[in-house]
């Protein structure tokens, strides 16, 4: 049993690297996902994940599967789409979710077209679904830096970020931190998506944010606890997914997201805070 759990990591360096990578992604992605969910921006995260694709694809077009080119391209595209969607919703009658949907469909089509211009289907799969089992030193450094920046930035932004979700009118009456906070937060979202993109690809990167966050809502009634639970769930899903992929020879990225999905469904059923089973059998009511 122990050999089943530890063996793959003690024997194979690529499994160790993959584990370090997913742990780094879980550290940054979990709290970001919790805030996306509480700000009702879950689908925004999804849309922005797709938006990264054409940028990364342009990087690929110029430099092949180069870490820096695809990172810079992805960051630029993510920021452009986030800002463009924000501007469209502010100055036209279109709501932000509709404009994001328009932008991400456009991005996805554009991105796939650009990758196909030069590369093979293998490269396309690489961009869409990532290469968590082939993380090199530089990619690991990038992932670790992104999660470090994310955790530190969230620590600094924590109060205005929470307040902007709970009571934006109050925040506006005591401080001008609202808009810069929102923009920095969007920047962090893009940063984490670009990090997740290298390991899990554009389509699944957002999975390591939203699934642990959504699952954590069923275990904690307090935002601090939710962030910790979401990180733990993310790490557990990474570990479980890698083991699953190793022993059953499944593709690693989807296996990780599937594991997170299983944790989510279990939480949905059994979670102490509003899980379905607790709703079905609530127990006798209390005295007070």
């Amino acid at each position: 049993m122990i050999d089943y759990l530890v063996g793959p990591f003690s024997e194979f360096a690529f499994m160790q690297r993959a584990l370090v990578g997913v742990i780094a992604i879980a550290l940054g992605g979990g709290p970001i996902g919790v805030f996306l969910m509480l700000r009702r921006m879950s689908l925004t995260g999804d849309a922005m994940a797709h938006a990264i694709l054409p940028g990364a694809a342009v990087g690929y077009l110029f430099a092949g599967l180069s870490l820096s080119a695809m990172t810079i391209g992805g960051l630029a595209a993510g920021v452009i789409v986030a800002v463009a969607a924000g501007l469209v919703s502010r100055f036209t009658a279109l709501k932000e979710d509709a404009s994001l949907a328009a932008f991400y469909l456009l991005s996805l089509a554009l991105g796939v077209t650009i990758v196909s211009l030069r590369g093979s289907n293998v490269d396309l799969l690489h961009v869409l679904f990532g290469t968590v089992l082939a993380l090199d030193d530089n990619t690991l450094l990038l992932l670790a830096s992104i999660s470090t920046i994310t955790v530190m930035a969230l620590a600094i932004l924590y109060r205005p970020l929470v307040l902007e979700c709970v009571d934006p009118v109050f925040l506006r009456s005591v401080s001008r931190a609202g808009t810069p906070t929102h923009l920095t937060f969007l920047g962090l979202v893009v940063l984490n998506l670009v990090g997740g993109f290298h390991a899990l690809g554009t389509l699944l990167a957002v999975g390591m944010m939203m699934l642990p966050a959504a699952a954590s809502r069923f275990w904690a009634a307090d935002i601090t606890a939710m962030m910790i639970v979401s990180i733990l769930i993310g790490m557990l899903s990474g570990l479980g997914g890698l083991l699953l992929s190793f022993h059953l020879e499944l593709p690693a990225g989807p296996a990780i997201i599937l594991t997170a999905g299983i944790v989510y469904v279990l939480s949905l059923l059994a979670g102490r805070e509003g899980g379905l089973l607790w709703l079905l059998w609530p127990g006798r009511h209390l005295e007070a």
């Binding site: 932004l157 979700c165 709970v166 005591v174 904690a220 009634a221 307090d222």
Partner: peptide, 23 residues
Amino acid sequence: IDRTFPLSVYDLVAMGLWSRSGA
């Protein structure tokens, strides 16, 4: 106020100290 936000009464009240403690 987003009443579904997972925040305690204590933390919401504590935000009244913003002008003194800031972010």
